[in-house]
């Protein structure tokens, strides 16, 4: 017992000070994309060709867009571009409410997720229980979701909890590209959650199939199967990206932050 107490002192209080303090991310972390098509020579498509996932579109007249729903946040496009027109910033705030808002273009301000409407927020704002379903997720999204419940992030302090039964849940949190073999189990879990309820698609796979898009064994993500309230991009999304999205959805982060 005394050893456990001494260990407790040694290990200190280590919960992240986020969101009271700014998020601390790895130096090389690849977050929100920065696009600068002014640097693009005409007819250059090196970044488009370098992306194995079809996430980048270079239009006529120096326009560039990147679909964060398809992007795996790998470094290939930035390496392929000799002009510095495309790069990833350290900004972890990526979650949005609508699929099309994941498309980042150079001439539009990126939108962050907005809060749920007043009625739902009155119900879930201070207590949100989620049922996680991995529908062929590779265990990276799952692991970095699970980590939110550790002392490092302490999700419970926000009143958010992942629960064991859909019957106890206010919403579903989906990871994975939705394999054909998980299709039925996913829908049954969704149906088992009582109304009103919300749905969150987390990770490139759940949003659009990720690196498996097009495989006949999967459904290319949640798609139209379930109406989604929050899209969290990334492969996998950083835990702070997920936390940021959840807090914004509940209206617990000011929009400027």
């Amino acid at each position: 017992m005394i050893k456990a107490l001494l260990a407790r002192i040694h290990q200190k209080h280590r919960t992240t000070p986020y969101p009271a303090e700014p998020a601390r991310l790895p130096e090389l972390f690849r977050g929100a994309p920065d696009l600068d098509p002014e640097k693009c020579p005409s007819d250059c498509a090196l970044c488009v060709d370098a992306c194995a996932h079809g996430a980048i579109t270079a239009g006529a007249g120096k326009t560039l867009s990147l679909d964060m729903g398809r992007c795996l946040f790998c470094p290939e496009c930035t390496r392929a571009c000799p002009h510095g027109a495309i790069s990833f910033s350290n900004d972890h705030r990526l979650a949005v409410n609508r699929r099309e808002e994941l498309i980042v273009t150079s001439n539009q301000v990126r939108r962050l997720a907005a809060a749920l409407d007043e009625r739902i927020r009155a119900l879930f704002g201070r207590s949100l229980k989620l049922r996680e379903v991995s529908a062929a997720g590779c265990n990276a999204c799952e692991a970095d979701t699970n980590v939110l419940s550790t002392v490092g992030f302490d999700l419970g302090r926000f009143g958010i909890q992942f629960v064991a039964s859909p019957r106890h849940a206010d919403g579903i949190f989906i990871t994975g590209p939705v394999s054909e073999n998980m299709h039925l189990a996913l829908l049954k879990t969704w149906e088992a959650i009582p109304e009103p309820k919300i749905a969150i698609a987390s990770g490139a796979c759940a949003i659009g199939g990720g690196p498996f898009a097009g495989s006949p064994a999967i459904h290319d993500g949640v798609g139209d199967l379930i109406p989604v309230d929050l899209y969290i991009p990334g492969c996998p999304p950083h835990p702070l990206t997920i936390l940021d999205g959840l807090l914004r959805l509940l209206g617990r982060l000011e929009e400027s932050r």
Binding site: A52, H53, L72, C74, G137, C138, N139, A140, C141, E142, A143, C205, G210, P211, F212, C235, P236
Partner: peptide, 13 residues
């Protein structure tokens, strides 16, 4: 083109 990324996610851990 996607093979390398599928290899990275055969088992994500």
């Amino acid at each position: 083109p996607t093979t390398l990324f599928q290899m990275e996610t055969i088992a994500g851990d």
